[in-house]
Write a protein that binds this DNA or RNA. Sequence first.
DNA 1: CATTCACTTGACCGATCGGTCAACAATGGG
DNA 2: CCCATTGTTGACCGATCGGTCAAGTGAATG
Lengths: 204, 204
Amino acid sequence: MDTDERQLTPRGEERRRQLIEFAARRFAENGYHPTSVAEIVEGLGVGKGVFYWYFDSKDELFRAILSEGQRDLRRHQRDAIAGDLTPLERVRNGVRASIEWSLEQPVLVRLFQFAATDERFAGLLRQGERIAVRDAAHQIQEAMEAGEIPCADATLLAQAMLGVHTRIVHLMATGQIEATDEIISTAVDFCVNGIRGAADRSFI
Amino acid sequence: MDTDERQLTPRGEERRRQLIEFAARRFAENGYHPTSVAEIVEGLGVGKGVFYWYFDSKDELFRAILSEGQRDLRRHQRDAIAGDLTPLERVRNGVRASIEWSLEQPVLVRLFQFAATDERFAGLLRQGERIAVRDAAHQIQEAMEAGEIPCADATLLAQAMLGVHTRIVHLMATGQIEATDEIISTAVDFCVNGIRGAADRSFI
DNA sequence: CATTCACTTGACCGATCGGTCAACAATGGG
DNA sequence: CCCATTGTTGACCGATCGGTCAAGTGAATG
């Protein structure tokens, strides 16, 4: 029987959460491959069978962690650009919210970064990225149509912003730069200026 | 005896190169941890002892790959900003050269990305990054002093540019966007506009 | 030809890996 | 109280891991 079709009681749901949270932390600290299933179940003080009651494999557990993390990030991004804002304000808020969420979720950020380097998980990661990028590109496109910024390849600019976001968050999470509001603002400004000053390369 | 103090004959040098190149390719394709030493030596058709004649451990081999890769990238960056150029031209050329080198070295790019996620190698990777960032920041600083761009945190802007570079290269290497000259130009423009339009947040 | 040292072989080692399973405990509805 | 279902145990499995080493081979030097 597939573990993801199993009917879980509240007790079961809690155990599943424990496994996901403990494993995510160990994966982030030690790496995915070097962290064994034995280590995870010992850390929770349970038998090995518990693990395979809730997950078909170690890979599937990691995919579950990824999916839930992406869903949470996505929710925060959505909330950040809600309300009555100009397109450019939406872009600014979206970038800032993503950075702030990432600073609160260093474990997931680290796992996202690893997932990008492993073929087993890269596809799943890309799915989530594509949605976020498409949305950001949509806001940029609207800013262009509103005349706030010159026309250019909106998707590419969104990807560039994601690059800035990823780098800044990585530096803050590893303690290489401080996570002050001023530095976040400078990073956000870099992004906004990057798209605002973009030369017209579109064919519109 | 430490393997890195060993005196190698030309034959030995060649074998070392074979090991580094084959292993780098396998690490990039399959991942570092999932690729075994046995797989590497079998791929080269040699006995296992050969591996441990040239390297103390699998980890040390990976570190050697990283070091040599970073040295090569560094050389290209240096060449790109040589000559009689304005600071802003230097920045532009440096970013472009880094992107182009990365497109020619997809294997190393992939390994750099993985190294950033593993504590065993993150330190070594950071060393090389710091040098590159320091140099880029130096060019940006000069552009500020020459009045080409407003004053701001030069190091942070250099890091933001590195973020754009990393993301764009990753997308091109994974086939998510085309590696056309026009797209590279848009990315470089994003970087230049990002630092050019930056608000004055310095204390100077 | 003899010596030397760089290089190579591959069987072997203990440890650990992801995953299985038969037996057993807890829970809750009837 | 019974019983079905959910949840748990931990010994066990074959495979594979990184790493070792005594025994060799190759080629250059004298």
